[in-house]
Amino acid sequence: MAAEQAGQLSVLARLLYPYAGDRSEVVARRLIRHFGSIRTIWSASIEALDEALAQAEECPAEVGALIVAARQLAEAAAREALIGQPIDTRAPEFRYYLVRRLGMRREECLMILFFTGEGLFLAEDFYDGGQRAEVTIPLRQTVRRALDLDARRLVVAHNHPSGSAEPSEADIAATAQLRRVVEALEVGLDDHCIVAGNVIASMRSMGLI
């Protein structure tokens, strides 16, 4: 375990070196101590990163933005690999993708994923909760985006930072409203997945869709 932690520290320090220089290991150690793991650092919002480093004189202001930019680059690469591919939204690989995107976020975030009628991945929209405890499903934007993409199927996913994947009453009501709206436009709502850490609850499997 000690060797693994040393390896994580080394990787993070190398990422930070262009900005933090000789202080990169000190900054990396501070981040790991505050967030507890590389995975949590990687998932943290810019606000959370800046707050964690606000008291660190040795930390350049650009470090939080650097980590977020690196994450966005990795996410864009993963998303690009899905475009035009047939996706089984019940498959473990798809669920793992959702876990990677949402599982360790400390604020509630929302993803809308768009597919053709044959299940080919078209695009996704990501809504960061920022400082809010929860996010709502943006109906107008989702409908407009689905029509622009000529999407025929949707999957909604959001996380519960509380650690419980159980859908709330608000989740169930918002999902029902979205389903009514999109199905009137001949767009199917395949699922609404709740992500909590490594656990995913499928509202479709629970009979809530």
Rank of each mutant, 00 (worst) to 15 (best):
A6M: 12
A6H: 12
A6S: 13
G7T: 04
G7V: 06
G7A: 08
G7H: 10
Q8C: 06
Q8S: 09
Q8T: 06
Q8W: 11
Q8F: 11
Q8H: 14
L9T: 10
L9V: 02
L9M: 12
S10V: 02
S10M: 07
S10P: 03
S10A: 13
S10E: 15
S10T: 05
V11P: 01
V11T: 06
V11N: 09
V11M: 14
L12C: 05
L12E: 00
L12Q: 01
A13F: 05
A13P: 04
A13V: 01
A13C: 05
A13M: 11
A13I: 06
A13W: 02
R14L: 10
R14Q: 14
R14E: 14
R14T: 06
L15C: 12
L15T: 08
L15Y: 07
L15R: 09
L16N: 05
L16T: 04
L16V: 05
L16P: 01
L16D: 01
Y17V: 04
P18Y: 06
P18E: 11
P18F: 07
P18C: 13
P18L: 11
P18T: 11
Y19Q: 12
Y19L: 15
Y19M: 13
Y19I: 07
Y19N: 08
A20T: 05
A20E: 00
A20W: 02
A20K: 01
A20H: 00
A20C: 12
G21Y: 06
G21M: 10
G21C: 07
G21V: 02
G21A: 14
D22I: 04
D22H: 09
D22A: 07
D22G: 07
R23T: 05
R23H: 11
R23V: 02
S24N: 03
S24G: 10
S24P: 03
S24W: 06
S24Y: 02
E25C: 04
V26G: 11
V26F: 10
V26M: 10
V26T: 08
V27M: 10
V27Y: 01
V27C: 07
V27E: 03
A28D: 03
A28L: 12
A28R: 02
R29Q: 15
R29N: 15
R29Y: 08
R29G: 15
R30L: 13
R30S: 15
R30H: 15
R30F: 12
R30N: 14
L31T: 01
L31H: 01
L31Q: 03
I32Y: 04
I32K: 04
I32D: 03
I32G: 02
R33D: 15
R33A: 15
R33F: 14
R33G: 08
R33H: 13
H34F: 13
H34L: 09
F35D: 02
F35C: 07
G36M: 09
G36T: 05
G36S: 13
S37F: 08
S37I: 08
I38F: 07
R39M: 09
R39T: 09
R39S: 12
R39F: 05
R39Y: 06
T40I: 09
T40S: 10
I41C: 01
I41D: 03
I41H: 00
W42P: 04
W42D: 15
W42Y: 08
W42L: 06
S43L: 04
S43T: 00
S43H: 03
S43W: 00
S43Q: 07
S43R: 00
A44T: 02
A44Q: 01
